[in-house]
Structure formats: structure tokens, C-alpha cells
Design a protein around this nucleic acid. Structure first.
Length: 508
RNA sequence: GGAGCGUUGGUCAAGGGGUUAAGACACCUCCCUUUCACGGAGGAAUCACGGGUUCGAUUCCCGUACGCUCUACCA
């Protein structure tokens, strides 16, 4: 495939959610696999839904994911502008061309008139459509004589441009890269608005015009767009020729875990997991919607997880680097059916990536987390060693704090209850002996510490096993963490003895 | 209501005329480990239903059911 050009076209109305990032990913993978170009086009044609900051957020998200576009408002390119609001004038030209050729018409109906029409013509359950029969009852350039239309236009009466569905219904068929042949009958689709009263295009006109002008070769979008495909195909036919149309792929939806529809922003709060890629704060309400990044996901894991949501390479492999994905991805292997989002599986991906990436890859992020808890890291080398020691136990980045804070400060709380029931004078004596034995040790390493520990236990005829848990609780504060003597070696003599003494007091 | 799309274990899914119907997540049991993890071994499916086609259908065809999406001067 030559000169592959794909695009992701979000509207800047808020945070970017899972499904959006997955669409970005598939675009990115496809473009890179074929040596093509990945374009980011901002679909800001709805002035009422414009949200300040949303555009910046999208770019920050792509940067965090490592899915940088080749062309965009900030990356430049030969097809600027990449913001549709700045292309406003072009769309009008195409809309007028359609009217001139009889494929579209002016409609002067006011919102009130439209509502009245819908109310009178809607049936029991069916909503009324602005179609070949109803348009004859409305105020438009098809029903109104040419003079009257000219007059209204010159008076600047608000109007829209609507596409005119063919007079004789026909089947519109196209081949979707994922679903194969799909067809619709034009009798079923209504005369969509192409150009709004404010002169801005609707999505329908804008995608087609921009995909043509930007020479898009393959267009990926969510399955929710499938029903409007016939409108777009007709537009391609009328404007540029169907042969120039990009190949379409309608991606399966990402569904709610309980199977009731597509995953939405609100589901995050309902199920207790992030839905957006990064934290998003609504500039008006101040409402914060949590993101995967801040929840403690690694971009590698996030991207990997997204790729497997609806795609697989058939080998059973689940862990992929971005480069491997580029190499193995194929749009034909994307599923048709939607997938319920499984947060447990998402966490598993993160756990896997934490385990296999060198700690240097996420050390800085973890360090910030420590410092947010008031733990200052001064010894970088020790910090890396500690992270290495506990990484198997961490699923999300914040887990490092709970798993490793005790290496850098005394446990916040000591789970005395775990040892108290079996505590006795003999054990107490053991630890007092242990303190003095450790006190006089010249070297301080795990093996020696364990040896001394066991010697004293044997002299006192105590089972080491009954003493290990108490020691762990003393050092760690709870029943978790790496080998207890490794911990001891790491925290040092002074700190260790301090913690033993401290717990001994609590046990009195 | 209409149109479109979809339907393999709880979830993600491989497979696609003849298989013991892969694998992963989660869950349970066991092993390892004198903690918790990691690691290892086990454990679950009449492939939505009904008709065809066929020697044979989870796989092909047609229906049905169910689910989802769309049905805005939003994308």
C-alpha cells in the first residue's frame, strides 16, 4: 500500500476515553505498519460544545501514550489547517456545489417548525424523519419556488443545507475492512443536515470534505457511525467520486462490564475504574474524572491492553511492545463484536509490564508518589534496589508506596494483633538476646543475620518459624514484603534494632 | 417502531465442516515459600435456539431469539 494516510478526528469536548485512545492506536499502528502518515484533525464544528483545554489534553494524552501524530495543529503538515473551525469557508463551497447539482437543498424550517413536524408525524414508536415524503411538507428550496428562495437567501433568513436522498431508493453497498460487505437502502436514511445555520458543517459534510482534501486512504471509526455510512458514501459520489473514497473500518464498541451498552465516562465512577486516559477536570464544574495515568498505569501497559481489546494476532501472545504491535497488527483481525471492558485484565497487563520493565523506566513516577507521601528519597541506588525487590508485588504504581515505604521510614502502624496471641516471655527473651547479638555484629548482610538469628533460636530451643513472623511484623508492620533478612540488611542495623525495641514495648 | 451490526466458558478470546473446542483474566484447590507475592500443577463450554445443506456442523445457508448502535442544525 502506498501513501497510506489515516486520521483520528476527535471533537474537543472533554477528556479522551478508552475507546478514543484505541481508535488512535489502531490508526497509529496501521499507519506505521504501512509506512504511512497519521493525522490528527480537530473536529470543532460544534461551537456549543467547545471546551477550553480539551484540545491540549488530547495532545498530552497522545504524547503520554507515545502515539504522536505526524500531522496536526501542533505537528504541522501540508494539509493545514487541521482544525475544522478554521476550514469553515471551504465547506460552504462544497455545500453550494451540491445544491447546484440538485443533491442538496436549502431548508428554512425553524427549530420550532421542526419540532412541530416531528410531533405531528411521529408514530407510536417511530420518530419522524426528514425524508422524501416529509420534506415536501416543509419550507425548503424544493417546495418553495425559486424566487421565494432567492428572496429568503438574500434577506439572510437562517437556513441549513440538507442532503437530498435519491428520489428512487437504492441500495448503497460498501466493503468494510472488518465486517465485509454492508449495505443500506437510501429509503431508510433521512436528509441529514450538511451545513448548519451558523455556517459550520456537520460531521457528515466535514469528514467527507476533509478526508478528500487531506487525501485520507483508510478511515477508522467506531461502530456507532455505521448507520450514517450511506450519507457519507453518497457525498463521496456527488462530490469527489466513490473511487476516491477511503477504505472504511468500523471498530467494535467497548462495552460496560455489565453488558448494558457502550462504556461511558460515567461508568468509571459506577464501577470504580478509570475510563479516561488521563485525569480530566471539567473547566466549568470542576468535576474530576480520573485517568489511567494517574491511577498508576504504565503507558506500555495501557496501550498493550487497548490493542488486545478487539484484536489479537491468533498466536495467543498477549504482551506486546509498540514495535511488535506495529509489526503484527492487521485491521482484518479486528473483531466484529463489541467487548465488555474488564478492569481486572487491564490491571494484569500493568502488573506484567511493571515486572518486565527495568525499574529505571518508572522510577521517577514512583519517586513522586513517595514524595507525595512525605517520604524523601535521597539514596537513588538504594531506591532502585528496593523497587526491584518489590516489583513482583505491585500491580499499580501506587502499590510501590504500600509495598516499600517501610524501607525508608518506620511502619506507620504495626500489626501487633498478628503476633500477640502467641507471644510469651520466652520469645521476648529471644529478641532481647537478638538485639545484643546484632549489636555487636561487624558486618551487616542478610546471610549473616539469618545465621545469627537461627543460632540463638536453637540455643533457646525455639522454632525459627515462630519467630520469623514476629520479626517481619516488627520490621514491616504487616504480613507482606520480601524475605525478612533481605529487608533487615537493607534498612541497616540502627533502624532494625530501633524497630525491634519499639515493637517489644508494644507487646508488653 | 425502523434500519444496521453482532452472538464460542463469568470476562477477553483461538479455531472455522471431522479437534480431547487453544490460551489469558478472574475464581477455587494443591505445590513452592516458616509472610505476601512471583512461579508451577489442576479445575469450568450440550460453541444462543430452530430448521436446512452434508456421510458429518460450533464452523456454510435461512429463520427465530437476544444484545447493541443509530434514528439531532452532537460528534
Amino acid at each position: 500500500m502506498n501513501n497510506v494516510r489515516v486520521r483520528f478526528a476527535p471533537s474537543p469536548t472533554g477528556g479522551l476515553h478508552l475507546g478514543g485512545v484505541r481508535t488512535v492506536l489502531f490508526n497509529y499502528l496501521f499507519a506505521h505498519k504501512h509506512g504511512g502518515t497519521f493525522i490528527l484533525r480537530v473536529e470543532d464544528t460544534d461551537q456549543n460544545r467547545y471546551v477550553p483545554g480539551a484540545e491540549e489534553y488530547i495532545f498530552e494524552t497522545l504524547a503520554w501514550c507515545g502515539l504522536e501524530p505526524d500531522e496536526s495543529v501542533i505537528h504541522g503538515g501540508n494539509f493545514a489547517p487541521y482544525r475544522q473551525s478554521e476550514r469553515k469557508a471551504m465547506y460552504k463551497l462544497y455545500a453550494e456545489q451540491l445544491v447546484k447539482h440538485g443533491h442538496a437543498y436549502y431548508a428554512f424550517d425553524t427549530p420550532e417548525e421542526l419540532e412541530a413536524m416531528r410531533n405531528t408525524y411521529k408514530t407510536e414508536n417511530a420518530t419522524a424523519q426528514y425524508n422524501s415524503v416529509l420534506r415536501s411538507k416543509m419550507r425548503n428550496s424544493l417546495t418553495l419556488g425559486p424566487d421565494e428562495v432567492a428572496q429568503l437567501l438574500s434577506e439572510g433568513v437562517p437556513h441549513v443545507v440538507r442532503i437530498k436522498m435519491p428520489d428512487v431508493p437504492e441500495d448503497i453497498t460498501f466493503t468494510d475492512m472488518i465486517r465485509g460487505e454492508v449495505s443500506f437502502n437510501t429509503a431508510q436514511v433521512d436528509d441529514k443536515v450538511l451545513l448548519k445555520a451558523d455556517g459550520m458543517p456537520t460531521y457528515h459534510l466535514a469528514v467527507v470534505v476533509d478526508d478528500f482534501l487531506m487525501q485520507i486512504t483508510h478511515a477508522f471509526r467506531g461502530e456507532e457511525w455505521l448507520p450514517s455510512a450511506p450519507v457519507h458514501i453518497l457525498l463521496w459520489r456527488y462530490l469527489f467520486g466513490e473511487d476516491k473514497m477511503p477504505q472504511w473500518a468500523h471498530l467494535p464498541l467497548i462495552l460496560k462490564p455489565d453488558g448494558k451498552g457502550k462504556l461511558s465516562k460515567r461508568d468509571g465512577a459506577r464501577f470504580g475504574f478509570p475510563v479516561y486516559a488521563m485525569n480530566w477536570t471539567d473547566p466549568v464544574t470542576g468535576e474530576l474524572t480520573p485517568g489511567f495515568k494517574e491511577t498508576g498505569f504504565l503507558p506500555e501497559a495501557f496501550v498493550n491492553m487497548l490493542a488486545l481489546l478487539g484484536w489479537n494476532d491468533s498466536s495467543g501472545q498477549e504482551i506486546f511492545t509498540l514495535d511488535e504491535l506495529i509489526q503484527k497488527f492487521s485491521i482484518e483481525r479486528v473483531h466484529k463484536g463489541g467487548a465488555k471492558f474488564d478492569y481486572e485484565k487491564a490491571k494484569w497487563f500493568n502488573h506484567e509490564w511493571i515486572k518486565r520493565l527495568p525499574v529505571s523506566r518508572y522510577r521517577d513516577s514512583v519517586k513522586e508518589l513517595f514524595e507525595a507521601q512525605g517520604i524523601t528519597i535521597t539514596d537513588e541506588a538504594k531506591f532502585d534496589k528496593v523497587l526491584e525487590l518489590v516489583k513482583d508485588r505491585c500491580t499499580l504504581l501506587p502499590d510501590f508506596v504500600t509495598q516499600a515505604a517501610f524501607f525508608f521510614r518506620q511502619p506507620q502502624s504495626v500489626d501487633v494483633a498478628a503476633i500477640k496471641p502467641k507471644w510469651n516471655a520466652q520469645k521476648n527473651l529471644f529478641f532481647i538476646e537478638l538485639i545484643s547479638a546484632y549489636q555487636s555484629l561487624q558486618t551487616w548482610e542478610a546471610e549473616a543475620l539469618e545465621k545469627v538469628f537461627k543460632e540463638i533460636a536453637s540455643v533457646q530451643v525455639l522454632k525459627p518459624g515462630e519467630l520469623m513472623l514476629p520479626l517481619r511484623i516488627m520490621l514491616v508492620g504487616g504480613k507482606f514484603g520480601p524475605g525478612v533478612f533481605e529487608i533487615a540488611a537493607m534498612i541497616g542495623k540502627e533502624e532494625m534494632l530501633k524497630r525491634i525495641k519499639h515493637t517489644l514495648q508494644l507487646l508488653v
